[in-house]
Nucleic acid binder design. Structure first.
Lengths: 261, 261
DNA sequence: CGACTACTTCCACACTATAGAAGCTACTTC
DNA sequence: GAAGTAGCTTCTATAGTGTGGAAGTAGTCG
């Protein structure tokens, strides 16, 4: 079968796509949103959005303010998320990351592949006043982050990945901007078993990431330790990497295999 | 069977209802589920479920195992939940409950009204080896729990609530089983500003709950301290109640008003 | 006080979602 | 190892669902 990397047009699901789009708008809105607001954002008729919203309210996925007639996400959305957290093993992974953060004193993230980006699904923040922080749900580039490079280096088809990335935008002095340079870095990452990022995306920020591997040796996710460069000198990298690799190995047991999380 | 809450006859939303039903099945399934399994649970044609599942997978709400062709909730469901947590103020409420749990040494819950039941949306467990525990997502009766009685006592129309409850099943020696008895208890609750439950649902378990009130004085949620009766003697109730009331007042500022959460 | 904006309801029609049939693969049984 | 079984997936004609324009209602601003 032709592996359709990009989502092909699936027919017979217009309504579902629209309903999920409404949820997405509410997810990305601070506070609440009105029907017209949502309709405009999605370029849909207000009556269509209104009907969809009504169904979502009836199901509890959306909460409705009776007075202001405005909407926000509801309790069923919250409960769905909790269930997803459990079934994807994030709740089991969290204590492992917390331990890693405590051991290293730095922030720790769990990142999964989401198309051509990395998606932060868990974070534990360092207790230090100066710490690296990225919100859950943040999407990060693959080619210039420790987690992204760990995901790429242990992807099923490394060459295909590199060509697919296209242009590598320069974000800092140390950003790797050539395909050959990235290839060399990923080979090293694969050989070492962990990826290192020294200010390639944000100046002064260093990351060390280990892949969470499935039975075939492909990366399902990546665990990263992140902090200011001065607290993570070259000499400390081996120790940090070893801790990250250990944590990643434990996370492997926590999350379900075979799923593109 | 599928009716969630009070699903009136809303037309033009069959597909959305079905898609949400598929999500509900996955939510209530441990591990993963197959198409046929879901179709049987919902009494739908497999091809219908398959198409819906495909749309949900494309949107990232459902994760698909390519090898086993089985499904579980996906990352977008998780992210939606996190967003709901934020917009409903649960993330802001959590530290308040944690403080209450630390102050009292007992388990703390936040419960909202869900139709004719209470729904546990947050919990912080006591550090004690013997502790009361209820999972997030658990639904509890209103008439025999501290949180339920706090929600009832501060409902908009108290009389209507009591008649609507119907039969009050006896669960323990101390369960209130008569409408007049419940009425008296709720009046006291309203007067005191907090509800107490001494083993009315589970023998030996005591709860003290304070309502989270909106601007109109109606309950939006309830905060409860729960533990074994012997650690919560009558003499300690005023102190615990005062702490619960204070916490509930702070939670009021955290959660959005006007929404039936 | 009138104009404006937003939410809600209704209904005929177009087009979407439906479900049956059939192909396909993986696993089980004999 | 062949035959059988169960489950996933694709296809398509058709029924019936969802659509969006229009009209009604309520609240807000100048």
């Amino acid at each position: 079968m032709a592996a359709d990397g990009t989502t092909g047009k699936i027919t017979g699901t217009q309504t579902i796509v629209r309903a999920l789009a409404v949820l997405r708008v509410l997810r990305d809105t601070d506070g609440d949103a009105g029907i017209t607001e949502i309709a405009r954002a999605l370029d849909l008729n207000t009556s269509t959005v209104h009907r969809i919203a009504k169904a979502l309210v009836a199901a509890g996925y959306v909460a409705r303010n009776e007075r202001t007639e405005r909407y926000r996400l509801g309790r069923e959305a919250f409960l769905l998320g909790r269930a997803a957290e459990r079934t994807l093993g994030f709740d089991a992974a969290e204590p492992l990351l917390e331990r890693l953060a405590a051991e290293t004193g730095e922030s720790v993230n769990l990142v999964v592949r989401d198309g051509d980006e990395g998606l932060v699904v868990l974070r534990v923040e360092s207790a230090q006043p100066l710490r690296f922080t990225q919100p859950v749900g943040a999407r990060v580039p693959l080619y210039c982050t420790s987690t992204g490079k760990a995901l790429l280096a242990f992807a099923a088809d490394l060459d295909a990945e590199i060509t697919r990335l296209g242009d590598l935008a320069r974000l800092t002095d140390t950003t790797i901007t050539s395909a050959t340079g990235l290839r060399r870095d990923l080979d090293l990452t694969r050989h070492q078993g962990f990826a290192v990022n020294r200010g390639e995306r944000v100046p002064g920020v260093c990351g060390v990431a280990a892949p969470v591997l499935d039975a075939d040796g492909a990366a399902m996710a990546a665990v990263a330790i992140q902090g200011p460069e001065f607290r993570m000198p070259t000499g400390r990298i081996p120790e940090l990497a070893s801790l990250a690799v250990d944590a990643a190995r434990e996370v492997t047991a926590a999350i379900p295999h075979g799923y593109l999380i």
